Computed example of a mutant assay.
Amino acid sequence: MATKTASTAAFDWAFVPARPGWPRRMARLARQHPAGLFGLIVLVLFVVLGLFGEQLAPYPADELSTGTPLQGPSLSHPFGLNQLGQDVFSRIVSGARISFIIAFWAVFLGAGSGAFLGILGGYFGRWIDYIVQRSGEAFAAFPGLVLFLMLRTAFGPNLKTIIISIGIGALFGGNRILRGQTIIERNQIYVEAARAVGCSEWRIFMRHVLPNVLPLVVVIMSGAIGAAILAESGLAFLGLGPTEASWGRDMSGTNLSIARTGYWHVVVFPGIAISLVVLGSNLLGDALRDIWDPRLRK
């Protein structure tokens, strides 16, 4: 009987399929989530341009008279020239740096910290939750533009002021949603079962509650990327943005007036760049939510 049991166990283990390697798993995820793959490609390109855009641009972003002003797209200037004779393609490639810096700080310092505070307050409650929620309510009393103007007066019109104002907005942007989701997870049966077997509150928080809330954190942080880029573009459109080349600046002021006279390429290509990055971040966030959410795994 013992021999039969041993042989049966050996037979079962022999036919257990091996786990596919990571290239096959990545290829399967790409087939299952083509929109997420598109978003990943867009964001990787955005990061590369943000880090090395000034070196990859065929012309300096602020160089004047690289050709005939307001010339349309051509082989030497794929996106045409603006009214100052600056190459639009070079300005888009170089302008990705400003959007990348603002999005990086807003997401990883603003949205990331705010997400952790919201989850922490929702799980532990008491004075932690009170401080986080009252701080969010105090921030909601100040419109974003008013807060930016106050910081601009205090610190001056520079890139640091824009980063601080957008980062504060991202800090309290989604913590209420995460707080509510954490409260729901905190009252689930599996949390009570973990307490019953003697798990500490910190272990339950890190090993059980946080993984179930993490997909929502990914969606909020991916949305923060697009929101940060749109916020910088809106400030630049109003003439309050950075003085360096940026996508929002190329869509504002004189450029917008010139585009109405028929020179569409001056503002269309910067607008496409903004739209692609915002769309890519949202698509990637939705795909990561579907992949990482334990409730959606098959």
Rank of each mutant, 00 (worst) to 15 (best):
W105N: 12
D62M: 10
M26N: 11
R97N: 14
R134F: 07
S94D: 15
F139W: 11
S74M: 09
S90I: 07
G112M: 02
P20N: 11
A61Q: 08
L29H: 05
P23M: 13
S74K: 07
A35S: 08
Q133P: 01
G80S: 13
A140T: 01
P34H: 06
G72I: 03
P73F: 08
P17E: 14
L64A: 12
F116D: 03
L56I: 14
T68C: 05
R28V: 07
G72D: 13
L81C: 04
I119A: 15
A111Q: 06
R31C: 12
G156C: 08
G21K: 09
V107S: 04
R97G: 11
A106C: 07
G112P: 07
A106F: 04
E63N: 04
S99D: 13
S74D: 13
T68P: 03
F52P: 02
E54M: 02
G156I: 05
F116E: 08
S135R: 03
P143D: 02
V88Q: 09
H77D: 14
A138T: 11
G118E: 08
F148G: 00
A96H: 03
S113D: 03
L117Y: 01
R134N: 12
T66A: 15
G53I: 00
P143C: 04
V16R: 11
G80H: 10
I128W: 06
S99I: 11
R91L: 06
F15G: 06
G85T: 01
M26S: 14
S76D: 15
A61M: 05
V42A: 15
R19D: 13
Q133C: 05
Y123P: 03
A96R: 00
L51G: 12
A27P: 10
G85Y: 01
P60H: 06
A141W: 00
A18N: 07
S90Y: 06
D129Y: 09
A35L: 10
Q71Y: 10
Y130T: 12
L43D: 12
P17V: 05
A103K: 10
Y130K: 08
Q55T: 12
Y130W: 09
L56D: 02
L145W: 00
F108M: 01
P58D: 08
N82V: 06
R31K: 12
F155W: 03
T68Q: 15
L40E: 08
I92L: 13
R97I: 04
S135E: 02
S135W: 07
L49I: 03
L84T: 05
E63L: 13
G114E: 03
G114F: 00
Y59Q: 06
Q133W: 00
A18M: 08
A35W: 03
S90E: 10
F104L: 15
F100H: 05
Y130A: 14
P20A: 08
F89S: 15
Q32I: 01
Q32W: 00
G144P: 04
A14S: 11
P73N: 13
I92R: 11
A14F: 05
G112D: 02
F100L: 04
Q71T: 09
V107E: 02
S94Y: 02
S94G: 15
G125E: 09
A96L: 04
Y59F: 14
F46Y: 14
S113P: 00
F148I: 04
S65R: 13
G112W: 00
D129T: 11
P73C: 09
A138G: 09
R91W: 08
P23V: 12
D129N: 14
